[in-house]
């Protein structure tokens, strides 16, 4: 299982692995927002937590189809499904690899982009914490969506349609936590809810995703 994690990390960081694309997308989205809403500092400060959360969510969504589609194309998924490790673990490990290559870098980049959006001082801590604890849920929910559509030729758009509604609770609690933090309000409750969603997603969704993959390989 460590081998699978290392392989996925290695593939993501090699040429054509897409590592960095998500980050670049996150950067561009964040830069585009002031062009859309105007440069006024107060407005930007108010919407910064939401923009950064939505941006991170979309950047995470972009790379989801790589989780299983490439392995499906080259036959690795068939072989992994007949390998001695359970498919549920394969899903969990691949989702973890996805988080390490997208969610974690996004979390680390977010404070820097928050400077561009004029995020108030106390918001930085809560933004980073909420992203760090919430983006794993995005990867695991996304892995489930990717598993549902792995057998489809052009499943990318459909996958977005399936995954985005599932992202809503994560987004609500995550952005709310960051927003309350930025407004110097108590942000503990949404953070706890966010952690609950992440833990639930990590615990349950690999089973659903593995079931979907088995159906798709049939």
């Amino acid at each position: 299982m460590i081998a699978l994690l290392l392989r996925d990390l290695r593939l993501a960081t090699r040429a054509g692995g897409g590592f960095g694309l998500g980050l670049a997308f996150f950067l561009i989205v964040t830069v585009l927002v002031p062009f859309g809403v105007g440069p006024e500092g107060g407005t930007l400060a108010r919407i910064a937590p939401g923009i950064l959360w939505v941006g991170a969510l979309l950047a995470s969504l972009l790379s989801l189809d790589r989780i299983f589609a490439l392995d499906h194309e080259d036959g690795s998924l068939d072989l992994l499904a007949t390998a001695p490790i359970p498919l549920e673990s394969v899903v969990a490990v691949k989702a973890l690899a996805h988080w390490l290559t997208t969610g974690l870098p996004l979390t680390l980049a977010a404070p820097m982009l928050a400077v561009l959006l004029n995020l108030p001082g106390p918001g930085f801590f809560w933004l980073t914490v909420s992203l760090a604890l919430g983006t794993p849920a995005l990867s695991y929910i996304g892995a489930f969506g990717a598993a549902l559509t792995v057998g489809l030729k052009r499943g990318g758009l459909l996958m977005s349609l399936l995954v985005l509604p599932l992202y809503i609770p994560t987004l609500i609690y995550g952005a709310d936590c960051a927003r309350r933090g930025a407004a110097a309000l108590a942000a503990g409750t949404p953070l706890l809810m966010l952690v609950a969603i992440t833990l639930g997603a990590v615990a349950i969704l690999p089973f659903a995703a593995a079931a979907a993959i088995r159906v798709n390989l049939r």
């Binding site: 460590i2 072989l79 001695p84």
Partner: peptide, 29 residues
């Protein structure tokens, strides 16, 4: 059980020969 070799070889283009094989060796112990 059985080892299955399909039409597709399950190789990763950006890994070396040794890395590809090492991966499957680790998976199968």
């Amino acid at each position: 059980g059985a080892a299955y070799a399909a039409h597709a070889d399950g190789l990763k283009a950006t890994l070396t020969v040794a890395e590809n094989l090492r991966f499957w060796a680790d998976i199968f112990g």
